[in-house]
Amino acid sequence: MSSHQTIGNNPSQSTVVRALARDGSGRNLRQDIGQAPGFDPAAMLVRFPDVVAMTGLARATIYKRLKDDPTFPRPVPLSGSTSRGAPVGFVLAEVQRWARERIDARETTA
């Protein structure tokens, strides 16, 4: 079974996340992002569950990284609210860059 979720601010674009594989819990294991022409990861915002799926980190670990790790991507407020639980997004390119840096660090420490 495949689910579709629009990513970003423009639902009319054909940028869609497709769940290509799932484990027993129903979590997305692999996602196909950005096959649309003009796709720009620097201008694409993804939500918290997408960051969890892309990094493999638990939600609590992401909060800890936000507090303690200056290299972890900073969230972008999606509303004028500053209250706890206000919606945020993350810049896709920054999340991807952070993941690549972690992979590169593995190669230099091995």
Rank of each mutant, 00 (worst) to 15 (best):
D104W: 07
A19K: 12
L29G: 03
P87A: 13
R100I: 01
P41E: 00
S79H: 07
A19L: 11
S83E: 14
Q31V: 13
P11L: 07
A86M: 04
F90W: 12
F39H: 06
P49K: 11
G8L: 07
R74K: 13
A110L: 14
N9K: 13
A36N: 08
A60F: 14
D40I: 01
W98D: 00
S79P: 03
Y63S: 13
D104E: 04
A21K: 09
A43S: 10
K67S: 11
G24L: 09
A60D: 13
L92V: 07
T71Y: 00
V46Q: 01
V46T: 02
L29N: 01
S25P: 01
S14F: 13
A86Q: 12
S81G: 08
A99I: 15
A99E: 07
F39A: 02
S81H: 04
L45G: 10
M44D: 00
D68R: 10
G56E: 02
R65L: 02
S81I: 00
D50W: 10
P87M: 12
V16L: 10
G56K: 05
R100Q: 12
D23E: 04
L66I: 05
G8R: 05
S14R: 14
E107I: 15
D69K: 00
G85E: 03
A43Q: 14
R59S: 13
F48Y: 07
F72H: 08
V46F: 03
T71S: 04
A58G: 15
R100V: 03
Y63A: 14
M44S: 03
P70F: 07
P75K: 04
S83N: 13
A60V: 11
R74M: 08
D32Q: 09
V46K: 03
F90K: 00
A93C: 00
S2G: 08
A60L: 14
F39M: 04
F39W: 05
D40S: 09
S3F: 08
M54D: 01
A21Q: 10
R84P: 00
G24T: 09
A60Y: 14
V52R: 02
A43R: 09
K67M: 03
A99N: 14
V16M: 13
D68A: 14
I103G: 06
T109D: 10
L29R: 06
Q13R: 15
L78A: 03
T15N: 09
A93M: 00
A43D: 07
R22H: 01
A105D: 04
T82H: 11
I33G: 01
L78G: 07
S14M: 10
D68M: 11
E101S: 00
G80R: 12
D23C: 05
D40Y: 03
R59I: 01
G8S: 08
S12I: 11
S83P: 00
R106Y: 12
P77A: 15
G24K: 08
T6Y: 05
V46D: 01
V46P: 00
G89Y: 05
A19Q: 06
R102N: 08
K67E: 11
R84I: 00
R100W: 07
W98H: 02
A93T: 02
T82C: 10
T82S: 12
D50V: 08
A21W: 06
D40N: 10
S3M: 11
G56F: 05
Q13E: 14
P75W: 05
T108P: 06
P75F: 01
I62E: 07
T71P: 00
L92H: 01
S79D: 06
Q13C: 15
V46E: 01
N28G: 11
R27D: 03
A93K: 10
R18G: 11
